[in-house]
Structure formats: structure tokens, C-alpha cells
Computed example of a mutant assay.
Amino acid sequence: MSSSDQSNQDLSDRIDALEMRLTFQDDTIETLNQTITAQWREIDALKRQIALLIERLADVQGNTEGPRHEPPPHY
């Protein structure tokens, strides 16, 4: 094999290696993107649940504060 053939083969091997790495990286990026999207959906759902729980807690606290400050009916 001549030096030129060896150089071409080395270049071809390097290109093949880069193409494989690029394919792997594209797949990894897509997987990460899907994971991040799913996490953001879950975070948004959790934020909504927390907001609802805060509202419910405020309602419960508001309902229990009134009678607690009034004397019981037998006084």
C-alpha cells in the first residue's frame, strides 16, 4: 500500500469515527431534550398542585381562625 493510499485510508477512518460520534451525540441530545421536556411538564404540574394546596390551606386556616377567637356558646 502506498503512502497516499494509507493517508486516504487514515482520513477515511477519521471521517467514519467522526460520523459515528456525531450520530451518537445527536441521539444523546435528543434523549436529553425529551427528558428535559418531560421534567418541565412535571415541574409545571407540581407547581399547580402546590398552588392549589396553598389555596386550600389558606381556606382552612381562614375557616378555623374565626370560631377560635369567639368564646364558646355556653359562656
Rank of each mutant, 00 (worst) to 15 (best):
Q34T: 12
Q9G: 02
D16Y: 10
R21W: 11
P67Q: 03
R68L: 15
I50L: 12
I15L: 09
T23Q: 14
Q25S: 13
F24L: 05
D59Y: 08
N63D: 15
M1G: 07
F24N: 03
L46W: 02
R21E: 15
A38Q: 12
E65D: 14
N8H: 03
R68Y: 14
D27F: 05
I29V: 14
Q9C: 04
P73L: 02
E65L: 13
I15V: 12
D44R: 01
M20Y: 10
T35C: 04
E65S: 07
D13P: 03
L22Q: 10
Q61V: 10
Q25D: 12
D13K: 01
D13M: 11
G62T: 08
I50F: 07
E55K: 02
L57N: 08
L46K: 04
P72W: 06
K47Q: 11
L52N: 04
L11N: 04
D5V: 09
R21I: 07
Q39K: 10
I50N: 09
Q6D: 14
T23P: 02
T28V: 08
I50G: 01
S7W: 11
R14Q: 10
T28E: 15
I54W: 06
H69L: 13
D59L: 11
L52M: 01
L52E: 05
K47H: 03
M1S: 04
T31D: 15
Q61N: 12
N33S: 10
R68M: 13
S3K: 09
N33V: 01
T28Y: 15
A45F: 01
F24G: 00
A51K: 07
H69I: 10
H74C: 00
E70K: 06
L53W: 04
E55S: 00
T28P: 04
Q9V: 00
S3R: 06
P67G: 02
D26A: 04
Y75R: 12
A17F: 07
R41H: 09
T28H: 15
Q9A: 11
I50A: 08
R14G: 00
W40M: 15
P71N: 09
E30H: 13
W40A: 14
T23K: 13
H74P: 03
Q9F: 08
E55Y: 03
R56I: 03
D13W: 11
I29S: 13
T23Y: 14
N33R: 07
D26N: 09
L32H: 14
D59I: 02
S2K: 02
T31A: 15
Q49Y: 01
D5E: 13
E65I: 14
H74K: 04
R21A: 11
E55L: 05
V60S: 07
S12W: 03
P71V: 00
E42L: 12
I36C: 09
I43E: 01
D59A: 04
S7E: 15
Q25Y: 09
I15F: 05
A58I: 02
I15H: 02
E55W: 07
S12T: 01
R48E: 11
L57S: 08
H74V: 01
E70W: 07
G66Q: 14
R21L: 11
M1T: 05
R48D: 11
T23F: 11
V60H: 05
A45V: 00
N33I: 01
Q34P: 02
L53F: 06
